[in-house]
Design a protein around this nucleic acid. Structure first.
Lengths: 336, 336
DNA sequence: TCATCTATTGCATACGAATGCAATAGATGT
DNA sequence: ACATCTATTGCATTCGTATGCAATAGATGA
């Protein structure tokens, strides 16, 4: 392994000077600096980040804590897009990414431990649950972290970045109204989910603004499964009056609703959350596109800011778009 | 931060003794050992892995290098399942996981750099391309790594672990024959792909063993897109004789083939690679299940073995299963 | 020419854990 | 009681980098 001592020896300088060149200190003469950098390239010097971290007390790494329910998650376009966003932004800012998985052994299972054992400087925590013990632990240990919308206790180094689902529902509702629909059904994930609640809230606001009444039987909360969504949509389609459009708020349940419409052989528009597969299967369908990759980007950026400044960056909201035949409409015009 | 010195001070021992207790040395008295461990718990001691790594020259971390084509990848059930397997096995063996992404900045974009900068001890490299420069770099730098099937140059610390696609194709063909099919079409990914070639090879072997002739127009290689697969299947369905079954070798193209069958309103069996969505949409369809999570597990395990022993572990092959109405058949019986 | 000042560079040490070697304690034998 | 041996423990150093402080060079002024 090539160290700063090797560079120093070959250039006839002191290790400390080499170190200063590498950390961009202004205390070094430009000729010396050139010489050192040339030698570093020649010997293919790569800094030892463990040693650097030991000295500076920082790791320049972010831990990403993934939710466990692989079953739910696997069907989602969320993970790869999100991780890609996190990775790209992190590395653009000089940070690397470490994974944390519940169910794994220590310290990987516990993001607080990951930070305390100096494998990361902060944590990205996706989809917190109510009274999330992981969040509590992060606050207690004064660890910089960013999470989704969270109702519980907050901390001085905690930041929230999330997709605005109220806005998403509002946008969806407004879009359908603008397309002439007046009898609109809604299929959201179960009542316990904040995501689902928010979407419904926004949707209903759009309806009331448009003067459209939505009777309770036209709003169905279901578990996030294909079958549950299909059942719900099927029941809705047999109602009188039958909806001309159905809004759906997850990337999986869309397929259930579409199947119901298909089986019923009816012309009912399904507006759901985009996934690459949905685009492939129904390229002409309008859809709600959630910015998962950007969510990763923003979370990484905001977390690094928090780590660097030592105080929580500002909360951030991201907005969905409605995509219609490859044209983006309703992009941000109705953003609060 | 609580260090071994703090533990030493509070127990009246020397730091070296504390360190020995923590690393499980036999050179320590059991009473002393108890005392130290109790104090560690009391002070919530967490070892500083940067310091440990600096001294031991190891990081106990694996780098996972993900392929870039997010477009292809996003539709796949591969990423989340695979990462989950890697994470779980790695942490079970005391390792953590670092992400490497092409397109990211240094060192995250280059797994060799990740190892040289001491962020990981070895690399998991999924889906190598022909003459992969990343593989070449890993070999040149004598870095322990595991990758998929690879035809090019090999190295002393390189291990291959992959899903046996010849076997998968063979299994698929044999299954369809056992179900009475004799006119069978095949849709594989494009000719350049080793995965597709292998699948076809195995499939054809099964056909010839069964004495079934497959004319060239019943074998189609297509790009991995919904639309290309649909076209290919549609053409096949208009042939005379029309196939009674079509085998498809990716998790995305299945949907294209299914759509073609559906539009043609024909009763043709589509046997494709399983994904959670496929299971949701067509729960009763038999399907090829690829062990992505296990692939992650095995790759992590084999890599850690290679790191620990300093020489390449044995190459490993994993086998797909055919799932039929929640019963697994053809599991390993035809494994070479 | 000499004093003074600034721009560079070198020296020494610290970060926290691991480990070879020396030192000490207690146990054992005679 | 003494020597010898083994089981523990302590001491000192190392890993590679960063950084406060001291030292030196060259530049500037009078």
């Amino acid at each position: 392994m090539v160290t700063t001592y090797d560079i120093a020896k070959r250039t006839g300088l002191n290790q400390s000077t080499v170190s200063r060149v590498l950390s961009g200190s202004t205390l070094v003469g430009s000729r010396t600096s050139q010489r050192v950098l040339a030698m570093c390239r020649q010997l293919r010097y790569v800094p030892n980040l463990q040693a650097r971290g030991l000295k500076t007390q920082r790791t320049c790494a972010l831990a990403v804590h993934m939710p466990q329910g692989s079953q739910t998650i696997l069907a989602d376009p969320f993970v790869p897009a999100f991780l890609s966003g996190v990775s790209l932004q992190a590395s653009a800012l000089g940070y690397s990414v470490v994974l944390s998985y519940p169910g794994a052994g220590a310290p990987a299972a516990n993001p607080s431990l990951l930070v305390k054992s100096r494998l990361a400087d902060g944590v990205i925590h996706t989809s917190p649950t109510r009274d999330d013990p992981v969040v509590a632990s992060l606050i207690r240990n004064k660890i910089p972290f960013v999470t989704g919308r969270y109702d519980g206790k907050t901390g001085p180094l905690m930041v929230c970045v999330d997709i605005d689902n109220v806005h998403s529902g509002y946008q969806a509702g407004k879009f359908l109204v603008s397309r002439g629909h007046r009898t609109i059904g809604l299929v959201t994930e179960s009542k316990e989910s904040i995501v689902g609640q928010d979407f419904e809230k926004g949707f209903l606001r759009a309806m009331s603004e448009a003067g459209v009444r939505v009777p309770p039987e036209r709003i169905k909360s279901v578990p996030v499964t294909f079958e549950a969504a299909r059942q719900a949509a099927r029941e809705m389609l047999s109602q009188n009056p039958c909806p001309t459009a159905i809004a759906v708020n997850t990337a999986l349940t869309v397929f259930g609703a579409l199947e119901a419409v298909r089986q019923a052989k009816m012309k009912v528009l399904v507006l759901g959350v985009a996934s690459p597969l949905l685009t492939s299967l129904y390229p002409h369908l309008p859809r709600i596109q959630a910015p998962f990759e950007d969510l990763g980007r923003q979370m990484a950026g905001v977390l690094i800011e928090t780590i660097r400044t030592g105080k929580a960056a500002a909360t951030k909201m991201l907005y969905t778009k409605i995509i219609d035949r490859d044209e983006t409409i309703f992009q941000e015009e109705s953003k609060p």
